[in-house]
Design a protein around this nucleic acid. Structure first.
Lengths: 134, 134
DNA sequence: TTAATCCTTAGAGTTAACTCTAGGTCAAGC
DNA sequence: GCTTGACCTAGAGTTAACTCTAAGGATTAA
């Protein structure tokens, strides 16, 4: 079975070796094995797990909570319900983030228009009577 | 013209008074006036400006960069191009964030399905041959 | 008029997530 | 066999964005 060094994995996932060691220190990578001399040996599956960790991180989940999930994974079928609940919760979080980001996009697009027209007019004064300005 | 105290504004925008004073200290609120005794006096327009600041913050823009924008606003029409460029850049950033968040959502939804079916089966083993697991 | 409540500043403390350094071990290439 | 570079740990340092404390002045309500 193919294995990867810590710097291989760092390159593959666009992380630093520091970050990977930090994750390990925080208990996110209990499944990563070691060589006899103590070097980390990543397997394909470990990289997939790290992708899930990165996915959870991108939802804004703090590392301590991700650790709970990783711990549950090690506990087997008894924790299936917790893990399911966690992903349902994450789904709601991401839905809220998408809604918020879409609202943000609307404001940004309004501002693009605001400055485009101001630029064409040579002055911001053309928006003097608008509702929103800065 | 109606004015607001710092705690009025904090309530309205779901921020703390600490945060508002911190923004002021960082130079984000040069337009906020003071009473004779030195208390901050927010106007309707200042609250609108703070909403734009919150919008920029929600795109991940650091406070120092938001300060540049606020400074440009104080410099008048000479900086219209910079401000326009900034919002075009922000738009691209948010588009990328939306794309990433949608990808994240796909993974989360897959995991919801993964654990829903595992839960129904009583064991994770039914996914033994899947491509992605943790 | 006096107590409670709000405001002020300066500056210290907190937190998360890295990021790096020091000092050492190990492995691969010449 | 020796050098170079990758790896290891422990622990210190960094950064952004707050968050709070202390000490004191102003405003409001009874």
């Amino acid at each position: 079975m193919k294995t990867y060094s810590i710097s291989d994995v760092a390159k593959e996932l666009n992380l630093t070796v520091y970050t990977l060691r930090y994750y390990d220190k925080e208990g996110l990578l209990p499944f990563v094995e070691r060589t006899d001399s103590g070097r980390r040996l990543f397997k394909e599956n470990d990289i997939e797990a790290l992708k899930v960790i990165e996915c959870l991180k991108s939802t804004g989940m703090p590392i301590k909570e991700i650790k709970s999930f990783i711990d549950w994974c090690g506990d087997g079928d008894a924790t299936l319900q917790q893990r399911y609940n966690m992903f349902i919760e994450r789904k709601a979080t991401v839905e809220a983030q998408l809604a918020e980001l879409n609202k943000t996009m609307e404001v940004i697009e309004h501002k693009c228009w605001y400055y485009k027209t101001a630029l064409e007019a040579g002055t911001e004064d053309i928006h003097k009577d608008d509702k929103i300005e800065v």
